[in-house]
């Protein structure tokens, strides 16, 4: 398994090791190709962007990697482990967590409780399950979740029920929840969508900090400035196929990329 990961990424001697390797994956829904023979790698401690026009299949890639759908062909390797046939529930244990384009928080739970759910994979023993953590205000899992909220300037929302919060706050909580799984790879689906400029700046700083700490990010995003300031590598999708890959400054000159984006308002 690990040999596959190194063979995919071991080209340049100075390149960081491969964290996530997607090798020739395909998926069709009711006979329509959503993703066709897609390969790319995300390297440890780097941010990789996944861009493309609407409907190019970016979120589908996340769904295939996280296991919401199974692939029709190809393989997905996470930190050297082949997860292609692993149930979605187990994949987070290999060190990969994700956020959601449409903010999928548990509406009836408070912000803090949502974060506690995010910690599950690190608190999965029977003792953790049956410890009455709510009886201890300073229980370590609660402390950790509160700290994470404070780090993101969200502490005043800790006990609010999620359904009543503004979109921008929920979007940020969704991201914090993904980080609390302790995963080394984060798939972030349009993390900046719906945020105001100052929130976007904070988010950029936060993500750059995560990268500096050695986390691997894969980001789906439309905001090219945002991508430019975080991602060292960009994979461009169109109609489920990879049409270009490389640094943003290079791929944006690519004629096929320009053609894919004509009329899309970008570039």
């Amino acid at each position: 398994m690990s040999s596959q990961a190194t063979s995919t990424g071991g080209a340049a001697p100075e390149a960081a090791p491969v964290a996530l390797a997607v090798t020739g994956i395909s998926k069709s829904f009711a006979g329509v190709h959503a993703i066709r023979n897609l390969s790319f790698v995300a390297r440890k401690g780097e941010a990789t962007a996944l861009i493309g026009p609407n409907g190019a299949g970016k979120t589908t890639v996340f769904n295939l990697v996280s296991g919401v759908y199974g692939v029709d062909a190809g393989a997905v390797t996470v930190n050297g482990v082949d997860v292609t046939h692993m149930p979605s529930r187990r994949r987070i244990g290999c060190g990969i967590a994700r956020s959601f384009q449409n903010v999928r928080l548990m509406d009836h739970l408070s912000v803090l409780e949502n974060l506690l759910v995010g910690q599950h994979i690190r608190a999965a023993s029977l003792t953790d399950l049956l410890t009455p953590y709510r009886l201890f205000p300073n229980h370590r899992w609660r402390q950790e979740a509160r700290q994470a909220l404070a780090d993101n300037g969200l502490e005043r929302y800790a006990n609010e029920t999620v359904s009543g919060l503004p979109y921008g706050v929920r979007k940020r909580v969704d991201l914090v929840r993904a980080t609390l799984a302790g995963a080394s790879i984060l798939l972030l689906d349009e993390p900046a969508a719906g945020l105001n400029p100052s929130e976007t700046n904070d988010l950029r700083d936060h993500l750059n900090l995560l990268v500096a700490q050695g986390l691997t990010l894969v980001i789906v995003e439309h905001d090219m400035h945002f991508i430019d300031s975080i991602c060292s590598n960009v994979v461009v999708l169109n109609f489920g196929e990879k049409i270009a890959e490389g640094p943003l400054s290079v791929v944006r000159q690519d004629p096929e990329v320009r053609r894919a984006y004509i009329g899309d308002g970008e570039n």
Binding site: S66, V68, R89, I92, M106, H108, L109, V117, L129
Partner: peptide
Amino acid sequence: LYLTAVKSDPTVADLMGI
């Protein structure tokens, strides 16, 4: 907590490893 999580959004609860 997990009872509510599973009721609220089983797909996401599953992706969280529950």
